[in-house]
Amino acid sequence: MRSATSLAIAVSAVVLVSCSPDPGADQFGSTRGSSSGSAATTEADATTTSPAAPPPGTNLVRLDIIGQPGSPLLGVNVGHAQVVAQVARRDGGQIRVERGVDGGLALRLPAYSGAAAPPRAALQLASSGPHGPLDVGVQDFEFGTDFRLDAESQGTEVDGGNNLIQRGLASDPGQFKIDVDGGRVGCRVAGSEGVVEARISSSVRPDTWYRARCSRNGDVVDVRIESLESLKTAGAATATGSIGDISFDAGLPLSLGGKVRADGELIASATDQFNGVVADPVLTVRAAP
């Protein structure tokens, strides 16, 4: 895993958490400044000049977490200046900071409670313009994150799954998603020509760190996990089918830890909260053919 202070590119967007009513979102007042969280310029005052597009293969969602282990998340440094972030939450849910497998900082998401209205929270990342860097279209791409699943993680209609990282919902025309439903890692990629899903047959061990990656290469979807303890492949699966163009409504966020709507609100009826810890998300888009 990478250190918490690394950034994907030299220009970054610093986002800070402020309190907001519940349910809703902790608005990350997008600013540009140092990784310590001190703001140099507010979003309203920042220059409107668009930064140069990152080279193909750049991790567009690399995060620098701001906060102390055991305390609530204070903010996030996003490794791309056109990506903004906020925490969506319901029923008292919050994201806390925890140590990752290599001593870096990670995001502790709400634990499973079994309640009808459990605490829920997800980190969401969205392009600041109508056609931003998180749009994948027909291009090949890879995404994923490191994770540690809690021993108890699902069992109610509201929290019946563990959505790890995704953009789009099953009802949307486009989606890419990794979940750990039933303890098994799966990947779903949907586009204008169809849906392709691949799921690993073996289950992950609770309270164990893994690295999940899913890639779309033409009509082929590959999902794999690596144990970050043994540094060996722990499972893989491949599926093939027509996908086509993966398009999204402008501003639809990519989320870590649960399902969100286009307006950034968590899906209240079936959040599929990931119960555990996540770190070092990745989204890389390859050059267009």
Rank of each mutant, 00 (worst) to 15 (best):
V101L: 06
Q273R: 03
G57E: 04
R62Y: 01
T284L: 04
P289Q: 07
T48M: 08
R89I: 04
T208W: 02
D45R: 13
G155T: 03
R199M: 05
A121P: 10
V223M: 03
D135T: 08
S71K: 11
D140Y: 04
G33L: 03
S171E: 13
S242P: 08
L105N: 08
T240M: 13
C19L: 12
D102E: 11
Q139C: 13
V180E: 07
L73R: 06
V97C: 02
E152S: 10
Y112Q: 05
A106P: 06
F28W: 09
P51Q: 06
D181Y: 05
P130F: 09
I246D: 10
A4P: 15
S192F: 10
F176W: 15
G100W: 03
K259G: 01
S20A: 15
G276R: 01
G24P: 08
I178G: 02
A81F: 09
L149P: 08
T48E: 12
I178V: 10
G264H: 11
P281F: 03
V221P: 03
P21Y: 05
S242W: 02
A212H: 01
V84K: 14
I246C: 10
Q273V: 02
F274K: 03
S171R: 14
P206R: 06
A53N: 04
A46I: 05
V189H: 03
R224C: 00
D26G: 09
R199F: 00
A237H: 07
R2K: 14
L164V: 13
D146G: 06
Q68F: 00
K177I: 06
L256A: 07
A270S: 14
S50K: 10
V277G: 00
P130S: 15
R120H: 03
G264E: 11
G132M: 11
L60V: 07
L60S: 07
G218P: 11
P69G: 04
A111I: 03
E157W: 06
E43S: 12
V136M: 05
R286M: 12
A116S: 15
S255T: 13
A117I: 02
D222Y: 02
L252A: 06
D263Y: 12
V260C: 07
T5L: 15
A52W: 00
N77W: 10
S30Y: 09
V220Q: 12
E142Y: 02
G161V: 07
A239V: 10
L231V: 02
R205I: 12
R199N: 00
D222W: 01
A287E: 15
S50A: 09
P21W: 06
G75P: 08
F248Y: 15
E142I: 08
G251F: 07
V11E: 15
C187V: 10
A53S: 12
S269A: 12
E152V: 12
D280T: 09
S3V: 10
D64C: 13
A262E: 06
R108P: 01
S127R: 04
R205E: 11
S247F: 13
S3G: 15
T41G: 00
G186Y: 05
A237S: 14
P21H: 09
R108L: 10
V136I: 11
